[in-house]
Simulated assay, not measured.
Amino acid sequence: MAEITAFERRKLEKVLGMGDGYVLDFSDRTYAEFFLDFRVDIDAPEYRVGGGSKAKRMRTFWEIAPNHTVGKVLDGLIAYGLQIDRLGDSNPALVDDCRKIAQRLLSDQPVADMEALTAIADERDFEVVAEHVREAIEKNQPEGALDRLHTFVNKFIRVTCEPHGITISRDKPLHSVFGEYVKALRASGHLESAMTERILRSSISVLEAFNDVRNNKSLAHDNPILNYDESLLIFNHVASSIRFIKSLEARIKAKSLAQKADEPLWDETIPF
């Protein structure tokens, strides 16, 4: 349930023009299309328990969706309303108040580094599994997507390790591949502190334990799934690690390109 006070609801309803059951200038079709951009099926039965009008479905959406999802939708609605000049009340102070409500809700994200969980290769299955992982976070249901997070991590580490000359095979476990990656980083001088190396090495045993979670505590098989709090901890740890690795790999690539740019285009030892 989104944390919106009764006073805030009145402000939002006024700005979105919800007094007569409408929301801005949306038809039923465009309303559904707008919400689909935020991975929400506003036509689903759970949003119609309070009535089928657009305004009633919006109120139900506020009742059952998590803060971050509601914040994203509200932010989008306000931007759209300003663009078409059709806000129910365009008083600048009121619109600004509603924007602040949206931003406050947006700041309540269960996984801090969620934006790091994106595909890094042009592969359809990689993109799909990344989208499923982010959707689970946005719905605040990490326990239901541990198996997909495990698949995402496998794909991410494979794509990341290949440029470092690390052999990838189906028989080599994920934690072994990552261990070779950490060794390669150290050998190439890409890690500046022993503490960073130690943190990355600790992730080797974490990834080994992730295999057990995936096989015995996720929807990959007919198992009782892991509880919400521990699932959220796993998501946050994985997302934080991936954010760091993406940043590190970008720095390595930039350094390599700079070195190539400094190389002479000819061999200065050739006497002509």
Score class of each variant (00 low, 15 high):
Leu77Asp: 03
Trp266Pro: 03
Gly88Arg: 08
Met1His: 11
Ser90Leu: 00
Leu12His: 02
Ile42Cys: 10
Glu135Lys: 09
Trp266Val: 15
Ala65Tyr: 03
Leu16Asp: 03
Glu180Thr: 05
Ile204Val: 15
Ser205Asn: 13
Phe272His: 05
Arg201Asp: 15
Val133Arg: 08
Arg148Ile: 08
Glu135Thr: 07
Glu13Arg: 14
Cys98Arg: 05
Leu24Phe: 04
Asn67Ser: 13
Ile137Asn: 04
Lys56Ala: 15
Glu197Trp: 08
Lys255Ser: 08
His175Leu: 10
Leu226Trp: 01
Tyr31Asn: 12
Arg251Tyr: 06
Glu162Thr: 14
Arg251Thr: 11
Glu63Pro: 02
Gly165Asn: 09
Tyr181Asn: 00
Ile84Trp: 12
Glu192Val: 00
Ser169Pro: 01
Ala184Asp: 14
Ala136Ile: 08
Phe244Cys: 07
Asp108Gly: 01
Glu192Met: 08
Leu265Met: 11
Ala65Lys: 09
Leu117Gly: 02
Ser203Glu: 13
Ser218Val: 02
Ser231Tyr: 03
Glu162Ala: 14
Pro271Lys: 07
Ile78Cys: 02
Leu219Ala: 07
Gly76Asn: 04
Thr160Ala: 15
Ile120Asn: 05
Leu174Lys: 06
Pro66Arg: 12
Gly51Ile: 11
Lys54Trp: 04
Leu226Met: 14
Lys100Gly: 05
Gly165Phe: 06
Thr167Cys: 11
Ala184Val: 03
Gln103Arg: 11
Pro271Asn: 11
Asp147Val: 12
Leu185Thr: 00
Leu200His: 08
Phe26Tyr: 10
Leu87Thr: 03
Ser193Leu: 10
Asp75Gln: 04
Asp97Lys: 04
Asp229Gln: 14
Pro163Asp: 10
Ile84Pro: 00
Arg148Ala: 06
Ser203Ala: 14
Ala44Asn: 10
Thr269Asn: 07
Ile225Lys: 03
Tyr47Leu: 15
Val111Gly: 03
Ser241Phe: 12
Ile42Tyr: 06
Gly52Phe: 10
Glu135Pro: 01
Ala194His: 09
Glu135Met: 10
Val129Arg: 04
Gly88Tyr: 07
Cys98Pro: 05
Leu248Pro: 01
Arg48Met: 14
Gly144Asn: 13
Glu131Lys: 14
Ile199Val: 15
Pro173Val: 03
Ser193Gln: 11
Val49Trp: 09
Leu146Gly: 06
Arg148Asn: 08
Glu138Ala: 10
Ser169Gly: 04
Asn216Lys: 12
Asp262Tyr: 00
Asn236Leu: 07
Ile225His: 02
Val206Asn: 11
Phe152Thr: 09
Ser27Leu: 07
Ala220Trp: 02
Asn91Asp: 15
Phe7Asp: 04
Leu207Asp: 04
Lys72Asp: 07
Val128Glu: 12
Ser218Gln: 04
Pro163Leu: 11
Trp266Ala: 14
Met114Ala: 14
Phe38Met: 05
Asp75Leu: 07
Thr69Asn: 06
